[in-house]
Amino acid sequence: MMMKQLDILLVEDNESDAELVMHALKKNKINNNIIHVLDGAEALDYVFAKGNYAANTDRVHTLKVILLDIKMPKVGGLEVLSKLKADNRTKTIPIVMLTSSSEDQDVEKSYMLGANSYIVKPVDYGDFTDAIEQLEKYWLLRNRTIIT
């Protein structure tokens, strides 16, 4: 029997950043399926199965958590956040803001828009992997969502 895949959507425009996150996620050997999209527009397309992802219906129901960068070209993280939290189909998906910015106003805006968590990526990779590990264990294993 195949273990059920736990989908993580990583929205990150920077390939290197994404690679670091994925490295850290894989290190913990939790059976997950990481989908990486490069900007906010693509993230919305993916979640709502539009554009390039029109064929993938019902992706929404397998997403266990979305890791969302704030500063991205075209559609920024805060806009993606507000659109997902405003839509009944997606508002219950946990969204973790994963960013390098520790600006208070970003933190505040994110929570106002309904973010479930806000993580400032530590510069030190050891701390970074610790943070990702905690995040992964919490949101993928500990936290209960309404995914059936």
Partner: peptide
């Protein structure tokens, strides 16, 4: 200044994370 701070906060930290991360990997 606030915009500048935001920029510093994000743009300067980010490459450092990557450098540190890759060196670690």
């Amino acid at each position: 200044l606030e915009a500048f701070n935001f920029s510093i906060s994000h743009d300067l930290n980010n490459p450092l994370q990557v450098i540190n991360g890759f060196a670690s990997i």
